[in-house]
Amino acid sequence: MDKEHIHNEGFQVPEGYFEQLESSVLGRLDEGMEVPEGYFENIEDRIVSKVKPQRTISISRYLSWSAAAVILLSLGFWTFSSNNQGRDETLMVAMADEDVYLDYLLDNPEELESLDLSPFLDDSMNELDDETMIEFLDESEFDLEDLESLI
């Protein structure tokens, strides 16, 4: 059946019928279920923001240097691992995952003392300003939520 023929049948549909068809079939108003007005319009932004790295927070305000040291160490665990080949198996397994390793360090603070802090604790540490700190944390993709849970 060609398009011309359909037109000649004299059938019509209400304006916007096909645009609304999908949501009415999906939504089935007769189920008694509704959604807040505009819910589907802004959902993309809300979900996309969940997977974007968070950037615009002044970290230093919340951060004590001791917490910073723990974080820097956890981020720099590759450096650490190459210097500590004789460590026991538990630690090596823990190091396989950055988060697990961070938890391990928090549970075993004594481990911190035996680590080589020199890569992080040189003179420049004293001059580390907010901007450098944010840049470092940004580059290392450290999750702010993890950061806050340490404080």
């Binding site: 999906l26 939504g27 089935r28 589907f40 993309e44 979900i47 996309v48």
Partner: peptide, 15 residues
């Protein structure tokens, strides 16, 4: 791609 994905499936998956 993520925005297209959400736009394409949001209503169907929601229901």
């Amino acid at each position: 791609g993520f925005r297209s994905l959400i736009g394409t499936y949001k209503e169907r998956l929601y229901w």
